[in-house]
């Protein structure tokens, strides 16, 4: 993998990234069930389905592979990029660039940290690596979520991370299309708009849940 050509590395990153983007959509769908006033029944059902269905189980491996490829190549490529300019400029670059595109590495790292926290809070508990907080069964994601979001600080962290993710996605979508060479003069502007709308939707959708819990469920 280290020896892949520059474009191949980028293509893998792009494909993995697009896959992760589609996964976010599913995840958001499940999260939004928390907004339903049914004591967490729909949410738990969906979570249970995701946790037990055999096909989903296989897909989970693909998902992890997606994370791995995207993060691995992301770090690799960033390292290579860094080494391509060993002596920096005295005056930092003022060139006009696509919004936030220069900060993909930084936003990516923030999202990665969040991912780690998120795993500690949910996935590691589920698979038994981490003990659940007292009073909440290991498989009761609903009450875990309510507990976490009852803390304004945690909610703030969560919201911040999703705004950062939104920024990451805003460039990521059109960038992936560009990397894969699917751009076309007629449609590229539309792709950029769709990418921005999608990333806003994801960021807003995920942000909605803690806000809702914070203000309406306490």
């Amino acid at each position: 993998m280290l020896l892949y050509s520059s474009i191949t590395k980028k293509v893998f990153m792009a494909l993995a990234g697009l896959f992760l983007i589609s996964f976010l959509c599913v995840h958001l769908g499940i999260n939004l069930m928390l907004l339903k006033d049914d004591g967490g029944r729909a949410f738990t059902e969906a979570a249970t389905f995701m946790g037990t269905n055999a096909l989903i189980k296989i897909f989970e491996i693909v998902l992890f592979a997606g994370f791995f490829i995207h993060i691995f190549f992301g770090l690799l490529v960033s390292g290579q990029n860094k080494s391509a300019r060993p002596s920096p400029y005295a005056v930092s670059n003022h060139s006009e660039t696509a919004p936030f595109s220069k900060y993909m590495f930084h936003t990516g790292i923030i999202v990665l940290i969040f991912l780690a926290i998120h795993f500690f809070d949910f996935y590691f508990i589920k698979i038994g690596l981490v003990a659940p907080p007292p009073g909440v069964p290991a498989h009761d994601f609903y009450h875990r979520t309510l507990l976490l979001f009852s803390s304004p600080w945690y909610s703030l962290l969560y919201i911040t991370c999703f705004v950062v993710l939104g920024i990451h996605l805003n460039h990521a979508i059109q960038s992936a299309i560009q990397t894969l060479g699917w751009n076309h003069s007629k449609y590229m502007d539309a792709v950029k708009v769709i990418g921005s709308v999608y990333s806003c939707t994801i960021a807003a959708g995920f942000t909605l849940v803690p806000l809702f819990i914070l203000f309406f469920r306490r």
Binding site: I7, K10, V77, N81, S83, T97, A98, S101, I177, W182
Partner: peptide
């Protein structure tokens, strides 16, 4: 280095060459 599609190149190219050419090359390469 590798391309991260910031498009600073297009903005600074004195001949205004479009990044669509990079996409075309990627397509060719793939």
């Amino acid at each position: 280095g590798l391309c991260s599609n910031t498009y600073a190149c297009e903005a600074e190219c004195p001949k205004g060459i479009s990044v669509a050419n990079i996409a075309r090359m990627n397509r060719q390469f793939i």
